[in-house]
């Protein structure tokens, strides 16, 4: 008498076996591994066609080893919690379908690179957010506050649409070879965050931000490796945004 959907889409497809090879580290140590020791661990589980890497990690955590640590929340690619290095590429675990990853081979899951690993797939996000804060990611205006909304044409709004999509997952920044090796570089996300305001017709703080980006730790460190654009789970053209910022710095015109 009650009507509920019993996984109709998934129910049709036979389940398949998949092996995950997970990079693990327990800062307190385990019975087999020392504190802070990094090691690989393999688990094989049954998966369905609609299952994502996050589902597989949950199966392991929930049914095999509860100590496996990773962050996640929304599970559909909008909260930015579960960026990981999956088969050597940064992706969101909740947006990566197992069936798209060649389940014949073990799927390699590692923490994102360039930030200190805290436990298993969890890294210290604080340096990443600190870079974001540094570019003053908020609207700056002068003069009296208008009574109604500030006007902005659809074309002006479109100008910075791409970079408003950022969910601060760090997939771009932690895919950047310069970020890995250069402890000073802001990383692509901070430039994306700045771009969103620099090209917003309402904002008057562009040159403050551009000055920060023009700094030695800023935009000139980018070597256009395009890793960031490939890594972005929101499809933001990160490299393009960076080059637009570079262009403004070169020409002095927004």
């Amino acid at each position: 008498m009650t009507a509920t959907a019993e996984a109709p889409a998934a129910g049709e497809v036979a389940s398949f076996e998949v092996t995950l090879r997970i990079r693990r580290m327990n800062p307190e140590g385990t019975s087999e591994h020392g504190a802070g020791e990094e090691y690989w661990e393999e688990h094989t589980i049954q998966a369905h066609a609609t299952d994502r890497v996050l589902d597989a990690l949950h199966k392991i955590k929930w049914d095999i080893d509860g100590s496996l640590a990773f962050r996640r929340s929304c599970a559909h690619g909008v909260c930015g919690s579960d960026a990981m290095r999956i088969n050597a590429r940064n992706r969101l675990a909740c947006k990566t379908l197992l069936k798209d990853l060649n389940p014949a081979k073990p799927i390699m899951v590692e923490p994102i690179k360039g930030l200190p690993v805290e436990k298993d797939l969890i890294v210290d996000m604080e340096p990443f957010f600190a870079s974001y804060r540094e570019i003053m990611p908020f609207l700056m205006t002068s003069g009296p506050t208008p009574e109604r909304e500030r006007l902005q044409t659809p074309e002006e709004r479109q100008r910075f649409d791409d970079t408003t999509k950022c969910i601060l997952c760090a997939a771009c920044t932690t895919s950047c070879p310069v970020f890995w090796t250069d402890g000073q570089y802001f990383g692509p996300q901070a430039i994306v965050g700045a771009h969103r305001f620099i090209f917003d017709s309402r904002d008057e703080g562009q040159w403050d931000r551009l000055e920060i980006l023009n700094d030695k730790a800023g935009v000139w460190k980018c070597r256009t490796a395009f890793n960031c654009t490939e890594a972005c789970p929101r499809g933001i053209e990160v490299t393009k945004a960076i080059s637009e910022v570079k262009k403004v710095l070169n020409t002095g015109e927004i």
């Binding site: 908020f138 609207l139 506050t145 208008p146 109604r148 909304e149 500030r150 006007l151 902005q152 044409t153 659809p154 002006e156 709004r157 910075f160 649409d161 408003t164 305001f197 917003d200 309402r202 904002d203």
Partner: peptide, 16 residues
């Protein structure tokens, strides 16, 4: 929210 910078979609006249 608009004054805080929220990028609403706009009408042709530039309103929310």
């Amino acid at each position: 929210l608009e004054k805080m910078g929220l990028p609403f979609n706009r009408t042709e006249e530039g309103k929310v």
